[in-house]
Write a protein that binds this DNA or RNA. Structure first.
Lengths: 220, 220
DNA sequence: ATCAAGTCTGAAACTTGTTCTAGATTAGCG
DNA sequence: CGCTAATCTAGAACAAGTTTCAGACTTGAT
């Protein structure tokens, strides 16, 4: 029989969170394992905050989190997996934070733009961390699809929250997907210094207009 | 004084191409150097076509193109630079091809969507090559900004061509940027198996609606 | 033709992500 | 408590991107 295993059963998040945005509870972890995982994610975020993607070196992460290199790889099968998991972690925080103060805009488009700009400002406070996470996200190959998909669902949830919709139409979901595309790509252009903050703002506002365009009753 | 240098002066492309999309003529290359550069790019594209990003190994590129590793690095200071240059190369071909058969759509949005879908189908024929190029493009850091920017300008030129515009408004340029964002990001989701071809098509068509939205006379 | 400066080559070294191994630890069960 | 399977650790080993270096080769100028 397994060793460190099935001990916890209280790992569930904030309780009422939509099942589609909560990670599939794979083999439950021991408390010590949960602690290790946290230490690793913490070290990852910390190193990323310093020097971005390149500063997150697996040996350093292992050392900082007091874990052997082999163990690190058991928890996160690659650097990309690790950074995407770090992003999931940060996104959860963000979603929680955003929930507390819903956007004030009149239209759905305004609220979504406001929400994304708020998230953007948060990223600006830790540009290196943003760099590491976003680069990992877009560089991820098929082996990371489930995790990246999870991040995508979480992002979708945040946007739908901002729109204040119960059940969006297929058209609206398309618009949301396009908004996500723009969001990721605009972040990249900003991170690599090819677009200014103002530019990103304009792009976000521009793409959010799609929401009004696809509002029920318009162009049905 | 330099050795292999200033010999050519006929390196200019197809002649009438807009200056904004033609690379800044850095130190002109000898014919042999131009030939080396071509061999390298060819080897890069060939290896990429086989196995995508990972299959483009610098040692192999060097060997395939009959060039020492150090020389390869002199021409392209990193694997990312090499692949982005490969993309520039391919994009030029593509732009040339697209020019020949302009899209038939009624509206600008239709023509842009048609053009992008045509490009998409071309990429589908060499999915591994697409993988290598797009991954490199989005993974590129600041040190590759000039080259990535060049690719972006070329892409913009293709889209503006499809729209058939002389001098676009600022608003239209925003829409074009958003379309490019969507284009890149949608490609990534397709390449990593998280979106189907149909999905990409829908996203492209959705974002192209922004063009009509920003047409002069609408929402001035 | 000769020379100085810049290029190219071949090979080794270095870096960082990833894999592998042997032995020490830990968890849960009887 | 003692057993067994799984996990963890330390460290070596491997792979591919990148750097470095000494020596051979080209080039344009004198």
């Amino acid at each position: 029989m397994p060793a460190e295993a099935k001990v916890s059963a209280k790992v569930n998040k904030v309780a009422k969170v939509d099942a589609r945005v909560t990670a599939p509870a794979s083999p439950p972890l021991t408390e010590r394992q949960e602690a290790r995982r946290r230490r690793i994610l913490h070290a990852s975020a910390q190193l990323a905050s310093r020097g971005g993607f390149d500063a997150v070196q697996m040996r350093e992460v292992a050392e900082s989190s007091q874990v052997a290199l082999g163990t690190l790889y058991r928890y996160f099968p690659s650097k990309i997996h690790l950074l995407v998991a770090t992003m999931q972690d940060q996104l959860e925080h963000m979603h929680g934070t955003l929930r507390k103060k819903p956007p004030q805009g009149e239209t759905a488009a305004e609220r979504v733009a406001e929400t994304l700009m708020r998230a953007f400002r948060a990223l600006q406070r830790e540009p290196h961390l943003a760099d590491a996470m976003v680069r990992a996200l877009t560089f991820a190959d098929r082996s990371v699809s489930p995790e990246v998909d999870q991040v995508s669902r979480q992002t979708t949830a945040i946007i739908l929250d901002a729109m204040g919709l119960e059940d969006p139409t297929a058209e609206q979901l398309s618009a949301v997907r396009v908004i996500e595309h723009t969001w990721h790509s605009a972040l990249i252009t900003w991170l690599s210094g090819r677009a200014s903050i103002a530019q990103v703002k304009i792009d976000i506002e521009t793409v959010c207009r799609l929401i009004d365009l696809t509002a029920p009753g318009v162009d049905p």
